[in-house]
Amino acid sequence: MNSLIHVQGLAKTFVLHHRDGAQIPVLDDVTLDVAAGECVALAGPSGAGKSTLLRCLYGNYLASAGSIRIRHEGHWVDLARATPREILAVRRKSLGYVSQFLRVIPRVSTLDVVAEPLRELGVAADAARERAAALLARLHLPKRLWSLPPATFSGGEQQRVNIARGLIAEKPVLLLDEPTASLDVANAERVAQLIDEARQRGAAVVGIFHDPAIRDRLATRLFAVEAQILELAA
């Protein structure tokens, strides 16, 4: 099996220092392998820790224990131990993340927001913009919006910008947090097609999909995330 994600014994507990040191255990002993061409849907009720797991996989949350190995340029990098520079290098080349909400950069046009991940890989500005335009066209984002910063766009429009930005660099590992939540059926299907294509070219995809229709359409496997029992420390 050509594994691209290898998580072992992952635990995550939040310690709230200003709430009397309350400990909130969210993940405990999570072990997960994801191979190229798989789309693993994280399953479990709200609060079970699906988003927490996804953020740990991106290096956005610090693991409390265990390892999070991501395949990067032919070797494994453990995000639980990597330096910030190493994590950024893995993200630039190998690890993409589509968050639920677009973090807007003031003044930057939609086309450049989408093209940026390619620019970071050294693709020339014109070529990167061309690919961004092609992707936005596939997602049916009206052309008149491309030169505007996405700050004033509707939720569904911003989400499509976010997805285009997440998929443009064709990274081998993709993490998707509710990529179709604010989209109508037709637009959700366009996004699903792009995710399928990513999988078919060999990407390993891990996602949270609340809509059962989209989940069944995309997932090759479900992974149950179990809620931890909440214990408040004295």
């Binding site: 220092h17 200003h18 290096g59 950024l88």
Partner: peptide, 21 residues
């Protein structure tokens, strides 16, 4: 000290937690 988004989204030290919150 750490990766910018990690420190801001998952601060570990009491002072950083206070600063972010």
């Amino acid at each position: 000290t750490g990766l910018t988004d990690q420190v801001l989204d998952d601060p570990q030290h009491p002072y950083t937690q206070l600063l972010v919150s």
